[in-house]
Design a protein around this nucleic acid. Sequence first.
DNA 1: ATTATAGTTGAACAATCATTCAACTGTCAA
DNA 2: TTGACAGTTGAATGATTGTTCAACTATAAT
Lengths: 122, 122
Amino acid sequence: MVHKDTDCEILHLDVVDKVRSTMPKEPILNEVSTLFKIMGDNTRSRILWALDQNEMCVCDLAALLNMTKSAISHQLRLLREAHLVRFHREGKNVFYVIDDDHVKDIFEKAVEHIIEKNNPTL
Amino acid sequence: MVHKDTDCEILHLDVVDKVRSTMPKEPILNEVSTLFKIMGDNTRSRILWALDQNEMCVCDLAALLNMTKSAISHQLRLLREAHLVRFHREGKNVFYVIDDDHVKDIFEKAVEHIIEKNNPTL
DNA sequence: ATTATAGTTGAACAATCATTCAACTGTCAA
DNA sequence: TTGACAGTTGAATGATTGTTCAACTATAAT
């Protein structure tokens, strides 16, 4: 995205230098935010959660999430393109599976985080 | 978001039942996707990454990321409202800090993930 | 008091994006 | 080969959202 340059002078050069020197390459941070963006949709995160439990075909996903095949299929395409899921056809059905253990980790950690946050007694 | 009901019959009832029975409550999955959505913006994830290295004032963040104070401040407001960062004023400066260790974990795990993915020799 | 700097905020605009709709492909059964 | 079902796809649409702009508040220095 195009945006204006900064309108600021650096105030604490030591801090900015320190942070800048350890900053990951731009493409890395880009991929990180892209990953989160893909997981950051209610439909897609429910799909990922479901597939984390069991591989599923499109129709069952649609029934489970109470959405149309088309809507689910569009979101699965995004997940496929991001290599977060892969699929195999069996007869008339196309089954989707999570393709990436890191995604499972990250997703499960986030669920933990939310549950703990809502459950201060833990 | 409002959407149509499903246009599918359940095809594999055992799978759907199994997945449905362990499905987190809707609000939990909602908060999870909201968390990812917030982290899923290039500017916000760079801010989070920077604050993960060191607390920083708005102006230094703007200089580091080469963006205007206003743009940064708008994004910091979202991060504040999501309780991902907190701030304290010192004189004319307002310093922001990450408010949530889980966010650090999740973020660092995602960076690891991307780096490993781009570096198959690891 | 006045001026300058740091930061915030609301409205507006442009861009992105999720779902719908309709038309399509692929597979199986009769 | 015809029909039915599972799934995909492109265009359209409505909603969401990131940045800009201009006006504002807060703090410190002169």
